[in-house]
Write a protein that binds this DNA or RNA. Structure first.
Lengths: 216, 216
DNA sequence: ATAAGGTTTAACCAAATGGTTAATTCAGTA
DNA sequence: TACTGAATTAACCATTTGGTTAAACCTTAT
């Protein structure tokens, strides 16, 4: 089992500065491969190559493919959860939330191109996974629900269940990226034109949503 | 290689009536497994078991896993394409299209629970696949574009690119199903309540879209 | 220097998996 | 009835793959 380094100052300092412990090196390589190919198609040898180490090291630090995968999944989910949490728990107004999330989302996807696909694909393979690993620390939607209901009472937006609004915000933002090959095909759009479309959606989506729920 | 049966009337009639040729039997079993597990995780033995035949028969009729997979993918895509085509090429009015598609979509997904996930997952694995197999017979969006532009000129809907509207319609309909485990987790909703939500969306989505683009 | 303990490597292993083959069965035909 | 060619099966094969192991290699403390 990997033992924590008790001494060797230069190593520890370097590791803290650059985050290049063997564990993190392996985890990053595993992220790369798992997120792009999924659990079933990923190969331990490929991860080892990506990390520039021997295949046995993977098992030395993470025991098995399953455990390495779970580490990757947890990390991926921990990257994504705060993003979605913005909608539910941020302090700003409802319309600001929608504009903010929509505006930030494109860049988030550029930085994590396979993340949503990976999470959704693996959760469909094992839907209980999310409960098994995150049952306690999933956010509570109640705050968002209160916010929506308040706006409805104030006559600012039309009646709509917070759940539906939440789903709609995510759908309009996330779907175009996870279904991009399909949409590119149907829209007969090349990569450049599609990126252009996504850029437009930064404002398009928020307008679309707000226009739909706002009472004029 | 499988030889077409030249005689034996009862067999042929039966096959035509019931669609139970060995090929179709294998294809159905392969659909079941491939669509649920994806190419990488699917096992030829499992498909053979599902079809109730020997593993060698799969290769006898379809040569290789890759070719069997491609047959399944083509079939799956041919099931889905007309569905999406409804939006683009149906003869009815824009609002009717939106209501129609949205209303039908829930039942379509119930009948083909893994279809969208499968297509999207495998297209992300190999984005060129859609071009390789369907380059010619993909629908042309021009008709839909004309329809949208006309409604804009008539002052019935606000200015919006047909591409964005098309993407939005698909996103709002399809996403809640492919991301259902994630959404169930975040909304803390059990299966029954989630199905209830999807039922509500049959009308909710169309209202949401039309409300957003219609000039009042 | 050397003993100790974590780290790294090369070689190896067993199970799984896609695919093949030779033999057998079966249906239709002459 | 015997022949012919397709359909089917059981056994087999080669490769891939996740995982293990024993030996070698540091690094550090005594």
């Amino acid at each position: 089992m990997a033992k924590e380094q008790t001494t060797s100052e230069p190593n520890i300092l370097n590791a803290i500065k650059e985050q290049t412990t063997p564990e993190s090196n392996i985890l990053n390589a595993a992220k790369e491969i798992f997120e792009r190919k999924g659990m079933a198609a990923a190969r331990m040898q490929e991860i080892a190559d990506e990390a520039g180490i021997n295949k046995a090291m993977l098992h030395y630090y993470y025991r098995s493919k399953q455990l390495l995968f779970e580490a990757v999944f947890k990390s991926a989910f921990s990257t994504l959860a705060p993003q979605l949490n913005e909608i539910i728990n941020a302090e700003n107004s409802l319309f600001d939330k929608i504009r903010n999330f929509t505006n930030n989302h494109v860049m988030f996807v550029v930085n994590h191109p396979y993340l949503f696909n990976f999470i959704i694909q693996e959760l469909n393979r094992d839907p209980d996974f999310i409960e098994k690993l995150f049952s306690e620390k999933l956010p509570n939607i109640q705050k968002f629900r209160d916010q929506v209901d308040k706006k409805i009472k104030e006559g600012i937006i039309i009646p709509i269940k917070a759940e539906h609004l939440f789903i709609n915000i995510l759908a309009l933002n996330i779907f175009p990226f996870i279904a991009s090959p399909l949409l590119k095909g149907f829209l007969k759009t090349d990569d450049h034109a599609y990126r252009q479309l996504m850029e437009e959606r930064k404002t398009e989506i928020a307008d679309f949503i707000i226009n739909s729920i706002k009472i004029k």
